[in-house]
């Protein structure tokens, strides 16, 4: 019991804080509109709106939280109404509500529905009163039938969508981040491609035995081409390059 009360108190505190924030930002907005209406621009105006709506969102979040005790189960009762000015009330509401009279209580405490809603309610009640019990039962049955039919349709569709989305999740694995990185690193930096380079020397063409791997001439370039350059043509070029590269340890330092 006391736990529940504690919770209620906490919730009310939080709600009050939010409402205060909301009040302040609405006040700021009104103030802006009154004093700067000549040169206020849309972005600041919309910023103000965003602020207010964020406060509202926060408020509804608090109200929808599970720990919040159901506030709608509680009733607010006006205990005393009087047509006279109430100074304490004026101060409390910053001069907005001077009296707590029969006139304003229905609006402020929502003891009365909105006029539009009230009218609708009256109409419906009249209609209901004119119906015979039999016709009413028939209509209820019909209504239930339609609603259950719609419910069936909706749940069926939902099942279909669930199956579809789950099967789509199964197909989804068409690309792999690791493979992307491996490929990009290979093409960009030669990662995994350089490993075999020193090995290529012994297996290379004739003449390449003497060439250190680092200054190896681009032999595979031609050797991969099917029938591109003959082995005979490659050997002299390798030797020639070898001599050149030995001389060119610091090609641009002279």
């Amino acid at each position: 019991m006391s736990r529940e009360e504690k919770q209620l108190e906490m919730t009310l505190d939080a709600v009050q804080n939010r409402l205060n924030d909301l009040k302040v930002s609405i006040g700021a907005m009104v103030h802006k509109l009154e004093t700067e209406y000549e040169f206020i621009n849309w972005p600041t105006f919309l910023d103000n709106f965003a602020l207010i709506s964020s406060h509202l969102t926060g408020l509804s979040k608090i109200l929808s939280k599970e720990i919040c005790p159901p506030l709608r189960n509680r009733t607010v009762l006006p205990l005393m109404l009087s047509p006279e000015r109430d100074e304490a009330l004026i101060q409390l509401t910053q001069g907005r509500v001077p009296v707590f009279s029969h006139d304003i209580v229905p609006d402020y405490l929502r003891t009365k529905p909105e006029p539009m809603a009230e009218q609708k309610m009256l109409q419906n009640e009249q209609k209901a009163a004119n119906l015979s019990a039999e016709a009413a039962a028939k209509q209820v049955a019909q209504h239930n039938k339609v609603v259950s039919h719609i419910l069936d349709m909706v749940s069926k569709k939902r099942e279909e969508w669930d199956i579809e989305s789950s099967s789509r999740a199964g197909i989804q694995q068409t690309s792999s981040m690791a493979d992307t990185h491996a490929l990009v690193a290979a093409v960009g930096m030669g990662k995994g491609l350089k490993m075999g380079m020193p090995m290529s020397v012994p297996g290379g063409g004739p003449g390449s035995m003497m060439v250190p791997p680092a200054i190896r001439p681009p032999a595979p370039m031609s050797s991969v081409s099917p029938g591109g350059v003959s082995q005979l043509g490659k050997a002299p070029s390798a030797i020639k390059t070898n001599i050149k590269s030995a001389m060119q340890v610091h090609p641009f330092q002279r």
Partner: peptide, 13 residues
Amino acid sequence: TELGCRVDFEYVS
């Protein structure tokens, strides 16, 4: 090669 470039890596695409 004569300019002083060396093969870094190669691949077939």
